[in-house]
Amino acid sequence: MVGRGSGYVWVDGERVLNGIIFQCNKCYTFVISENNPLLLDYLGLYARGSANEFVGPGTVLSTNAIYYNSDLSTWTGYTWHY
C-alpha cells in the first residue's frame, strides 16, 4: 500500500473522517485511515474503496461502512510505503 495524500470519508451525507490514503499498486484498492500506518501500529477509523486507477490527494469516498482497526498485524500480506 502506497501513500497517496489526504482524503475524506462521507457516510450518509456527513463527513466523518479526514484521513490518509494508502492504495495498492496492483489492484487499486485503497483505504482512507485516521492514522498513518507508517508511524503507528494501527489504522484507527478507516474506510475501504476500489478504483480503476490511482487516486490522488483530496479523494472523497462516499460509503455506508466505516471500520476500526487497533492492530495492523491483523492485516497480513500488506506492506505500507510512502
Rank of each mutant, 00 (worst) to 15 (best):
V2P: 00
V2E: 12
V2A: 02
G3V: 00
G3P: 00
S6Y: 13
G7S: 12
V9F: 01
V11N: 07
G13C: 10
R15Y: 02
V16Y: 01
V16G: 02
V16R: 14
N18T: 10
G19V: 11
G19S: 13
I20L: 15
I21W: 02
F22P: 06
K26A: 12
C27F: 04
C27T: 06
C27E: 00
Y28C: 05
Y28K: 13
F30C: 09
V31N: 07
V31S: 05
S33L: 04
E34A: 08
N36Y: 01
L39E: 15
L40M: 11
D41N: 14
L45R: 15
A47K: 08
R48H: 05
G49I: 01
G49Y: 05
E53S: 14
F54G: 05
G56T: 13
G56N: 12
P57D: 15
G58C: 11
T59P: 00
T59M: 08
T59D: 00
T63I: 09
N64Y: 06
N64E: 12
A65R: 15
A65T: 13
I66Q: 08
Y68H: 11
Y68T: 12
N69D: 15
N69Q: 04
N69L: 08
S70W: 06
D71S: 12
D71Q: 05
L72W: 04
L72S: 02
L72C: 06
S73L: 08
S73R: 13
T76S: 13
G77T: 09
W80G: 06
